[in-house]
Design a protein around this nucleic acid. Structure first.
Lengths: 237, 237
DNA sequence: CCGATGCAAGAGCGGTGCTCTCGTTTGGGG
DNA sequence: CCCCAAACGAGAGCACCGCTCTTGCATCGG
């Protein structure tokens, strides 16, 4: 068993976790650019050189934090999804969007790590891919479940995009119409555009009631991907 | 006249420009995080300390580059707008979106400077506001011109958002219906969500034919803000 | 013409990432 | 059970960083 490892391996895991925790702490205070290996080591009471036994470089530490951040965000999104349970697909969609937003607002620096400018010179290893796609997969699932019930494509895609749409559908969601997959990918990017602008302060002096604004925008995105827009539901009664 | 200043002032302007140029050059190669004042000075054949006569700190240099980047992007967007001339509002919208995208893809590091994670600890001075809002103002203009011709609101905004919608409309575009202003602000953020994902590599292994994808998404955004979607125009004939 | 001002250079401070070396600890196979 | 290789921590050191302070020099205005 992996838990029955020797004391050495156990200590290694603990120290690694301690380093990441302290790094995350500094990240939350100063941001990624000012994350200093020496400061982490100092805070942990060890020599800076000892740290290199656990992470080959600063970038490797950052990579570990990036993966953790993706996973944390994915968990938050999935928790929001689970929390609304049997609500309408649009309600699920909006809940997931709000979960993402709240996670991002609570840890802006970790968010910046994964959805801000990439670390210069550094390209994300494929290790990050599964963690990075959790939110996207969740959004796909919501739409797919909605289509399972009553489903037909309702968008037209221009001819020039049709082969790409087919390819995307095949790779990402074989049981959804290609047009929907294209629209979904767009909505996915647009969701993070909204979150980005809010977290990075681009809405300064533009949008003030950001919570209501976001809820509305997320609802419109839901409508856009073919889910019934909650407001229009309510207005119909 | 300001142009008839002494040789001293003239030299100052030239050196300042040279510093910014060299900094931009390094930016394009290494990214903002690795921009080094010492390296800039070295390349310019001057002592690093001399550089502080022109920029009080590294952050101030970055701020200057940020303003320039905003202006450069604004100019690119306006050029795209001017280039399509009398086309339909939706055509103008898509052209501006594509102008933004192309500018961003051509200078990813400058784009990251303004739409990526903000520089840590640094908050953009209000100096940047006018330059930063150029693209937004251009999008507003396109929609306003379209409404000038035949205009009525076509979105409903939930009650909780109505006061904010009124406030936004009053401040940003008094001659547009509040609902439209809200949708427009969302589309603005979403546009940069699309560009962000492409420039920062989030579409890796998801979207391959990014040009066609973007054109389609931009067209849908145009449709979303109430402009006639070009494809549906063509399909209607 | 001379004094005030702008400017460049150098030295230096405290910090960084990272490497290399050198003792020490420790765990598993003979 | 014991011993050796592997893992580990610490320290010194390299090259670089942003930034400051002081010192001379050039230049401009009265």
């Amino acid at each position: 068993m992996s838990t029955a490892q020797g004391a050495r391996a156990r200590a290694r895991i603990e120290v690694t976790a301690a380093i990441k925790d302290e790094a995350r702490r500094q990240l939350a205070v100063e941001g990624a650019a000012k994350l200093s290996l020496r400061a982490v080591a100092r805070e942990l009471g060890m020599a800076s050189s000892a740290l290199y036994r656990y992470f080959r470089s600063r970038d490797e530490l950052l990579t570990a934090l990036i993966i953790d951040a993706y996973d944390s965000l994915g968990e938050a999104a999935e928790a929001s999804y689970a929390a609304v349970g049997g609500e309408s697909p649009a309600g699920q969609w909006v809940a997931v969007c709000e979960g993402v937003r709240e996670w991002a607002l609570a840890r802006p620096h970790e968010y910046a790590l994964i959805y801000g400018s990439p670390v210069p010179g550094y390209t994300a290893p494929d290790t990050t891919v599964p963690a990075a796609s959790r939110v996207g997969r969740l959004l796909i699932r919501i739409v797919r479940d909605a289509y399972q019930a009553k489903g037909e494509a309702q968008w037209k895609v221009p001819a020039e995009l049709r082969p790409e749409a087919r390819r995307m559908a095949e790779e990402l969601a074989p049981d959804l119409p290609p047009e929907t997959v294209v629209v979904l990918a767009g909505a996915w990017a647009q969701l993070f555009g909204l979150v980005n602008f809010e977290v990075f302060g681009q809405f300064h002096r533009v949008v003030e009631d950001r919570e209501a604004f976001f809820r509305h925008a997320a609802g419109q995105l839901a409508h856009h991907v073919g889910l019934v827009y909650p407001q229009s539901e309510a207005a119909a009664r």
